[in-house]
Write a protein that binds this DNA or RNA. Structure first.
Lengths: 350, 350
DNA sequence: CTGAAAGCGCTAACAC
DNA sequence: GTGTTAGCGCTTTCAG
């Protein structure tokens, strides 16, 4: 199955020149049908595939898009979010014929080392960057590159394309939900405020409370880092000030918070209502199932690739901004609905 | 920051020929120190980086390794296993200067479509394949390729390199642990037996029981597909036959099983002991924390890349086989230790 | 419609 | 030590 055939070889076998074979492969119309057939037959028989390097040397395209995740966040893969995102991005890039190269940068030195390779024109056709922080030096450097780039999440400066979810709107919706149920001492397990997502969820939540005439009590707020353990710790501190409801700005943190409440013998939603954000499968299998804000992470990934592709082939020019909608999912953890019988059906994959 | 500089340009700027510049870049020793300095200065100043396509056209190397995960498994990213694996593989390939291309094949048609690209000589320097089933047609096709390949997990035929964990030994250890604690009606939530990991865990478990004179009661066995929901369903069936202990062949399934037991008002470990396999962070934060078999997934990923690299640069020739050790972690879910105070400390990242 | 020829940027003999 | 030259396999004018 050795494959070192060249265009020349195929041409010889089909009795034509290499240019004609190239034309057939690139679907140029200027080839006589019978010649075309003959060439295709030889290609099929020999299993010939064009050499990618030679091709991109002349075309300037590599067919590679990069996904960069600076995973200083230790909760990277503990949180199913990134897995869902990668699946969405992968599915879309498969479909568009691009290969996905993954860069997980686990620390500053890896960021330093990989930047030149990633940003180097002629290596990647385009770049997706996610999990950035505010004033992220990596983001700034990437953005200054000639490589088309799209951010998943909202960058903290303009001029760059991004696909985000409506973090503000979702958090606001959740605040309204909790207020509507009559809760008043409402706490927050916040997401890191050095991320725009964390800020947007905070601001949306505060706004939502304000619309019901409630101010967020600083004592009822403790921030985490999206991890389960940080949710646990944050909730431990909030508990001391007797909230009647708590919104955790991610499902993972909500699950940690739930564990803290359980360890303290506090019933959910009997004693305290609890809600998350993400719509992860864990929010559904939690006991009790968690009220949450559903974001379609897969769709965000797909959309991101679409935006990137439009940038790559010049159908559009930066910056393109796309905000994906979110939805409130009410489950029993906020006491808004009776606890349903849990039948162990497959979790929803949305 | 436009970068369309060529070797020729750098040469002109430094007053040397392109070959000399090439020698400097490729660390050939045959360059006079002062010339070398001058060239490096120009390279640094201009931010020149060599064109990857041109380079690999002549070298035959692309610096790309592929990771293929046929994710028909819907539990793909629900289970933190793959995330940990990807992190390990990514870290090791970063270190070795290779870029990681990820292929998540979500269905047969994607497998069909992507195979030619993935297997095509000259695109990837090497290939890592995981989550394969027995008699996997994709695996067979890949293995027949000229591309160096390493499997994560045990393939069901010889002649191919792989890195696996000691599934058999781990399951056997777990059986011994449960028997030693005096349990006798021991059940199994099995992993799919169309995977070698599933089979190995089954066989090791049966062997471990046998060593204590116990036979696995077929009624106390139900298989899942590694997902939480499948663990839930399997446990529901096993419960009917009143086990006093159950081994779930993955932590994710153990967590589902735990939920089933809770829904039935069955106490763990008071009424039934429960154990998992993987050593995921979820096994630690479960209530109660789960006894499990710890496998170092990150290390497996790293090892896999090492093996692949040795194959790629001809330091070794296939097949290389590497079996990673596992360790029994005893926690309170099997009643072997008192329930510890849970302090919400960061989960271990091992 | 098809072939010949140039050249993408680089490496590796091969001269000097 | 350093420059010159010949390709790597492909696409793309340019002739015919």
């Amino acid at each position: 199955m050795k494959n070192s055939l060249t265009l020349e070889d195929i041409g010889r076998l089909a009795g034509v020149s290499r240019s004609t074979v190239s034309r057939v492969i690139n679907e140029s119309t200027n080839v006589r049908p019978d010649v075309r057939e003959r060439v295709l037959e030889v290609i099929g028989r020999t299993g010939y595939t064009p050499n990618a390097a030679a091709r991109s040397l002349v075309s300037g395209r590599t067919g590679l898009i990069g996904l960069v995740i600076p995973s200083r966040v230790h909760s990277l893969f503990e949180d199913p979010y990134f897995g869902r995102l990668i699946q969405g991005i992968s599915a879309a890039s498969n479909r568009s014929g691009a290969a996905l190269t993954l860069f997980l940068l686990q620390n500053e030195s890896e960021e330093e080392a990989l930047f030149p390779r990633v940003a180097h024109p002629g290596f990647l056709d385009g770049l997706i960057l996610t999990a950035t922080r505010m004033r992220d030096p990596l983001l700034a450097k990437m953005a200054a590159t000639d490589v088309p780039i799209v951010i998943v999440g909202r960058p903290d400066f303009d001029g760059i394309s991004y696909v985000d979810v409506d973090n503000y709107g979702g958090a606001r919706m959740m605040a309204a939900h909790l207020c509507d149920l009559g809760y008043r001492r409402i706490g927050l397990v916040g997401a890191p405020t050095d991320t725009t997502a964390g800020l947007d969820r905070l601001n949306g939540f505060v706004e939502g409370l304000a619309e019901s005439g409630i101010a967020l009590n600083p004592r009822l707020r403790a921030d985490g880092d999206y991890s389960e353990a940080s949710g646990y710790r944050a909730m431990q501190r909030i508990i001391l000030h007797r909230p009647d409801a708590v919104f955790a700005a991610s499902d993972m943190m909500a699950i940690g918070a739930l564990r803290a409440l359980r360890d303290h013998g506090i019933d959910v939603p009997g004693d305290v209502a609890l809600a998350g954000f993400d719509g992860s499968s864990g929010s559904k299998t939690a006991v009790p199932p968690l009220t949450t804000i559903l974001q379609n992470v897969h769709a965000s990934g797909v959309r991101t690739v679409e935006v990137l592709n439009s940038l790559i082939d010049g159908r559009a020019s930066a910056p393109i901004v796309d905000i994906q909608e979110v939805r409130l999912i009410v489950r029993s953890s906020t006491g808004g609905v009776p606890a349903p019988a849990n039948e162990g059906a497959p979790v929803d994959t949305s």
